[in-house]
């Protein structure tokens, strides 16, 4: 029994450690905030371990972890929007969580999208998932993924264009 538990924990540790950087980037993209992203990553990790037995197919591990992280990000986002009624906002951390190259304008523009649209864009560009893989993670048809991507990109273009115009003025 103890041996099974150890093997189970080792399998989980291998999967989670390998996926953690990608999951963290995804969380930053969805939440727009490194602090909340770190919290979401930790919460998702604990949740994933608790339900690790329900993962029967090891090949589906990354998609399964992604789904848990996305749901956790939505929970964290909801909690945060309840706690801070001013809405979503990027917290530019002075604690070294950013690099000079970080494109904050784009991260801010991502917050214009709905959570589902943002998740689709983040999975496509941050994790480099294909459209069928995104459809699997988000449990939606591929057509929905395509239409979400198209609408998101149009929104992003408009948001970035208007913010650049404001910047010029």
């Amino acid at each position: 029994m103890a041996r099974t538990d150890t093997a189970r924990r080792e399998a989980f540790a291998a999967l989670f450690s390998q996926m953690a950087p990608r999951l963290y980037r995804t969380a930053v993209g969805i939440l727009g905030n490194p602090h909340d992203a770190a919290d979401a990553l930790q919460e998702a990790g604990l949740k994933a371990f608790r339900y690790f037995d329900s993962l029967t197919d090891p090949v589906a591990g990354p998609a399964w972890l992604n789904r848990i992280l996305i749901n956790t990000c939505y929970d964290v986002g909801r909690r945060r929007s309840r706690a801070i009624p001013t809405g979503l906002g990027i917290v530019e951390s002075p604690g070294g969580y950013t690099t000079p190259e970080t494109d904050w304008a784009l991260l801010v523009a991502l917050q214009v999208l709905s959570p589902e649209q943002r998740t689709t864009v983040v999975l496509r560009f941050f994790q480099d998932l294909t459209i069928p893989q995104i459809a699997q993670v988000m449990a939606v048809p591929e057509g929905t993924v395509k239409s979400r991507l198209h609408a998101s990109m149009a929104k992003l273009r408009a948001a970035l264009t208007s913010s650049e115009k404001e910047g010029v003025q």
Binding site: F16, A20, L41, G45, E101
Partner: peptide, 29 residues
């Protein structure tokens, strides 16, 4: 836009990741 989207994840600082992973693995252990 495509280029900015592709380069954004690489520009993020991953320093909070090891700490979060450690906390999760400690809790599981």
């Amino acid at each position: 836009l495509l280029q900015r989207l592709r380069s954004l994840p690489a520009s993020l600082d991953l320093s909070p990741v090891p700490a979060a992973v450690d906390r999760v693995l400690q809790a599981t252990a």
